[in-house]
Design a protein around this nucleic acid. Sequence first.
DNA 1: GGCATATAAATCGCGTGCAAATTAATCGCA
DNA 2: TGCGATTAATTTGCACGCGATTTATATGCC
Lengths: 148, 148
Amino acid sequence: MTADPALPQIEDLLCFSVYSAGLAFNQLYRPLLDDIGLTYPQFLVMVALWNHEGCSVKELGEALFLDSSTLTPLLKRLEAAGLITRLRNPRDERQVLLRVTGKGNGLKGKAAQVSCAIAGAVGISAEAARALRTSLDDIRDKIHDHAE
Amino acid sequence: MTADPALPQIEDLLCFSVYSAGLAFNQLYRPLLDDIGLTYPQFLVMVALWNHEGCSVKELGEALFLDSSTLTPLLKRLEAAGLITRLRNPRDERQVLLRVTGKGNGLKGKAAQVSCAIAGAVGISAEAARALRTSLDDIRDKIHDHAE
DNA sequence: GGCATATAAATCGCGTGCAAATTAATCGCA
DNA sequence: TGCGATTAATTTGCACGCGATTTATATGCC
């Protein structure tokens, strides 16, 4: 019954709690977002774009901690779905500026409903959620700092 | 400055804190695990197998909250690397039983070192980590319950 | 101006995650 | 015993994530 003391149980790893909670959120969002034709990462991108109209791929990536190699194909799918536009910045042709279309803005209401449904399913107080977010964001930032 | 009250900022979503912390853990583990030839999910599988010798794919999936369609290809890669064996259970040929090879067990020490390095980089107390794990595990379990 | 350097996206390859369908083996029950 | 229902694993298709490379554009320095 006594395990190797240097070797943790999977349940004792903080990273695993984060990992499995992340999977669970994905599974919780999936059926709700299916109704509006978005994946979970696409939903996060849309939320970010609703608050960062006209930003570049790089700026979006900084907000979401994602690389352009992840975002480019995802953004092309959102463009193909008619939810956003991708246009080169005339002032700096290296950048691609992202804008939400009318159709994309039409999802705001349903997206807000999904957010509320999620909050209800998770069922923790706003105060507890805030504390948890702070802890997780601190860890994330510390890890990023650690990598310089 | 006042955003649509029904529409959250990305930073206000608990799911995003979990999501981005998960990405950060992955990025933190990657270079360390590269040295022993494992990916982050493969590392989690090995930790689970070290504590569940001889379990089936289904049992492993229950421990990690992963589907067999995710695990089968991953386990085949671990088998190809010589770290585990996959053998049908003679008592029930539907099951595949997983065992760690000598080579696989040889990674235990280095895996433990990686765990310690991670704990150091995250830099929170064991007590704070335990509290955080409890909160995240509660949320994960509540989400799973919610899906029945 | 001219050219090395730096920056922003896009591309490529690989390994997850997971829904849906398939295959093989076991169970349950008349 | 036999056969439909259940279960375990695999396969397939698609969408991430990300390291590494490539392409196109802009910057800096002479």
